[in-house]
Structures are given as C-alpha cells and as structure tokens.
Design a protein around this nucleic acid. Structure first.
Lengths: 205, 205
DNA sequence: CCACTAAAGCACAACTCTTTGCTTTAAGAT
DNA sequence: ATCTTAAAGCAAAGAGTTGTGCTTTAGTGG
C-alpha cells in the first residue's frame, strides 16, 4: 500500500487527465473569468468526461484552488544575499504573479467560502505567500541583521500589493513594489511622509 | 417621464419588496455564506416571487452588490477635529464593517467579475471606502496641517485591514487598527521597525 | 373617485449543473 | 503474460436555476 499520497497511480491516465483539466482551467479563467468557469465547461475543453472531474475534485472551487496551488509552486526567484534586494525581488515576483491574467481570480477562488475547508485554503494560500518572503528574512537574521517581522512585511508590502491589484489601482508596477520595500527598510527622514519611489501618483479616481 | 432614477415609484410595493429582499439577502449571507445564496432562495425567504427578483436585479451578483452598496451608506462616524483620532475612528469603523458576518463576503461580491460592469463595482466600492478616509484628510488640510495622501492611507491602513480580515489573521482588532494609524501619523524613532500598538503578535500560523 | 401603468405574481418551459450505478480502460504488481 | 483494481467513460435521472408571456395588484396623477 503506497502511502495515501495524492495518487496511487501517478504515471498514467490519471496524470494526463489532471494535466488536461488544469490546462483547460487556466485557459478558461483567462478567457471568461474564474466566476464563469464551470466543471462541465472545463471538462469539455479538456476532452474529459464531466463525471471524472466531479469525482476527482467535487466542486469548481476545489478545482480552482488546486490549480492555483500548483500554479504558485512553480518557480521562485533565488536570493542574492541582500535583504532589501531580496525582498524587492520577491515583491516584484508576487506582483507579477497577481497581475497576470486570472491572477486575482485564482486568489479569489482559493479564498472562496465553500472550498472543502475554507480555513485550509486560506492558510495554504497565505503560507505560500509567506514562505517566499520568509526566506529572505530568515537569511538576513542568520547573517546577524535584525530584519522586520513577517507580519510587518505582510502589512506593509503584501497587503498593499493585493489591495491595489484587486482594485486595479493605476501605477501598481514593479517600481511601486520596490518602493514599498524601500519604504519599509529605510524609513523616510522624519515627518516627510512620502515614500521614495512611485507612489503619490493619481488617487482613487 | 420622471428621470431614469432608481425608482419611478419609490413609496409603495416596490420599496417594500426591495426591503424584504435586502433583508433576506443579509440574513442568508450571514447564515450560509454569500456563495450559497441564490436568487430563488432569497426570494423564498423574502416572500417574493423569484421572477420579480430576476427582473429587477438580473443576477445574484448584482443583487449582492446592491445590498453591499446600501449597507455601507448607512452610518458613518462623525469627526472630532484631530487628524489622528479621526483616522483611528474611521479605521476602526471600517474594520468592524468588514468583520461583521458576511462583511468580506459582501466585499467579494462587489468585486465579483460578472457584475454588470465590474469596473463600476470596483470603483464604487473603493470610492465608498476612500470617501470615509478622505473627509478627515481634507479637514486636516483645511486646518493648515499637511496630512498624508489618500493613497498612502489606503496602502498603510486600509490594505492591511482588508488583507488581514480576508485571511482571518489573528489579532486584527480595534487596537491594531489604531496602531496602523498611529504608525502612519507618527513614524517610529528610526530603525526600530515595530509599530507601537498591537502588531508583532503571532505570525501566519 | 377613476384611469393609467409600473411592477409583482403566476405558471410553465428550457437549460445547465450535479449525482449515481454500471461498464470499460489501462497502470502497476505478481 | 496475466491479474487486479483505481480511475475514466457512459448514460440517464434529478434538482435547481434562469427566462418568458400573461394576469393581477396597487401606487400615482388627474
């Protein structure tokens, strides 16, 4: 009995089907938006029987969450050894991940209230993001520096990025992501409350 | 033809039906979660015919967005005249609004990709939040102070609140909301990178 | 008080998603 | 090569949502 791993038969039709379905979902999300992707549609696109998808994933939310999970585990930027540069890299990478077509949609899917265990989905999603930022932080700590806490990075860098992408605020680009990190690492002079980089562009409107 | 306002007959059955449906939606969202609320369910609960709801709102997303919109326009904290205190009040109010049952769900509904015009929904939602914070800022500006920009408030206060509520991070309470404002208004000494208030509790896990 | 008409109620049809029992395929083990 | 069995395919039934023509109700203006 080969452990109750993800698949008892990883190297065959199952894997092919999963691949096909995943690809179909990614395509469909980019085309019509995550909220209009249904299991029958994904199955049709993948050339797979709907019942197979129902049996394997159960709900569209679970499927989307699964795709999102795998999607983020792909590549991750490697570290240079300088805290600020590393954080900047990760920030930019995170922003790009969010900004690509369907990026927010996948985020939303993973946070959806009806996924098997919502708490699990949330935690998984958060931990993936956290992990990327935690690496540079721990590296810095081991070098003897005293980096900010992960929570602080989440508040000051990650949260604004998510917020701005969700609301499609203009000027949310690589430069802005780096500015957030810079603002966190080197607080501005004193009571001149503007970050160094891109912000202060056009407000809400 | 009385302008194409929201209602040509505000004071009658229409209004009653809308009230009933709105109440039903609020209840259902709190009970079963926004993703499981359907138009027939809301109509049943409201004692209204489903077709009436379909004709008036069209989709469940539009209905949820409508409810969310009205829900936020209700009360708003009045201002004291001190920038920091006012911002703290608004921040706490915003947090409480988000944290009440279904708060995030409504947020998600309003940001949903298939509402009539998604951009409109996003903009409306953002503008409502912005407006609440902009009032204190403008008041301060008129008093001759130089308050931070709205964008900065969004990045430093609003975004973290939303992010933390969405991910159910612990310790996201009134005290934390005030700490965010404090951290924005009076930057910490220099390179002691921890805000004064509640943060630095337990990380992700 | 009456006429007008916007909006709600009603009934029914069509559609899509979802589920389930059974059959068939093919990966992995003997 | 053969056997075993997890997983996919198939088909058909069920449930719930969505859409539409028509009738009825009840504000609003004369």
């Amino acid at each position: 009995m080969p452990a109750k791993s993800k698949d008892s038969r990883p190297g065959g039709r199952s894997a092919r089907v999963r691949e096909a379905v995943h690809r179909a979902v990614v395509d469909l999300v980019a085309e019509v938006g995550a909220d209009k992707v249904t299991i029958p549609a994904a199955a049709r696109r993948a050339g797979v029987n709907p019942s197979s998808v129902y049996r394997r994933w159960g709900t569209i939310s679970a499927l989307l969450a699964d795709v999102a999970a795998r999607r983020q585990d792909e590549e991750t930027p490697e570290l240079v050894g300088d805290l600020r540069q590393d954080l900047e890299r990760v920030a930019v990478w995170t922003l790009r991940d969010l900004a690509r077509p369907g990026g927010v949609a996948f985020f939303r899917a993973e946070v959806a209230p009806d996924v098997d265990d919502r708490r699990a989905g949330l935690q998984a999603c958060l931990e993936r993001v956290s992990a990327r930022f935690q690496a540079p932080l721990e590296a810095a700590a081991q070098r003897g520096e005293s980096p900010p806490s992960l929570e602080r990075v989440l508040d000051r860098v990650v949260a604004p990025l998510y917020f701005r992408v969700v609301f499609s605020l203009p000027g949310t680009d690589d430069r802005f992501a780096r500015a957030l990190v810079a603002d966190l690492c080197t607080p501005p002079p004193a009571d001149h409350p503007a970050p160094t980089g891109a912000p202060e562009a056009g407000p809400a409107r």
